[in-house]
């Protein structure tokens, strides 16, 4: 089998295997004894959705039942680290398992174990976006304290009216152009040029040498 055909077959097999093996997250998942409860409101301030995870139970925030967020609304959260006290901690968040710049850390000198807050969605993003996102995160502190969690949230709205969607379309077009340029190239002699190639003129045979023995007679 040719190497390229083998590569194509391996790609197809990998695709099928991943479709079979990758199962959606079953619940809003919190590990390590931490609790997190989220709630969202719509543009008018009316409750939109809620999700929670932790020892007290998981609710919502799954791929099938994502936590709904309105661009014009707000999100509130209440969290607890349970029995653990995170000191000198660092935390990191991921979107689709890709690390994003939303990260940080704190000494937590007061030994706080709870946190709560609220934020307007549109104030915390440079432009409107929509879609379904898998978000995960972890926090690690001194003495091996650790919590991690993950869940799905959905930004409501029409993607066609958002800038990121059209940027993605532009990225697709750019990729298509690059693939078009990536085709193999064969240099061929044009048929007209081949037809007009002039054959070299026949060389005249050299004159026969004069007979040396009969020249003086």
């Amino acid at each position: 089998m040719r190497p390229t055909a083998r590569a194509a077959r391996a790609t197809v097999i990998s695709l099928v295997a991943l479709c079979v093996l990758v199962a959606p997250v079953a619940a809003f998942d919190m590990n390590g004894g931490c609790d997190l409860a989220l709630s969202s409101t719509d543009e008018s301030g009316a409750p939109l959705d809620a999700a929670s995870g932790g020892p007290s139970g998981d609710d919502g925030g799954t791929q099938d039942d994502p936590f709904l967020v309105d661009w014009e609304g707000s999100v509130s959260w209440t969290g607890s680290s349970g029995d653990q006290v995170f000191t000198n901690h660092t935390w990191q968040t991921y979107v689709f398992n890709i690390p994003i710049p939303v990260a940080g850390g704190d000494d937590n000198p007061d030994g706080t174990t709870t946190a709560e807050g609220s934020a307007d969605v549109s104030d915390n993003a440079p432009f409107q976006f929509t879609g379904l996102y898998y978000v995960s995160g972890q926090i690690n502190g001194e003495g091996g304290t650790h919590c991690d969690g993950s869940g799905w949230f959905k930004m409501t709205g029409n993607p066609l009216t958002t800038i990121p969607f059209w940027i993605a379309v532009g990225i697709c077009v750019l990729g298509g152009v690059l693939l078009w340029a990536a085709r193999p190239v064969v240099a061929v002699v044009p048929s007209t040029a081949a037809a007009t190639v002039v054959a070299p003129p026949p060389t005249e045979p050299p004159p026969p040498p004069p007979p040396s023995g009969e020249a003086g007679r």
Partner: peptide, 11 residues
Amino acid sequence: VFTSLAILGTY
């Protein structure tokens, strides 16, 4: 992602 079609889950 923007059209909420995460067909391959988290990956």
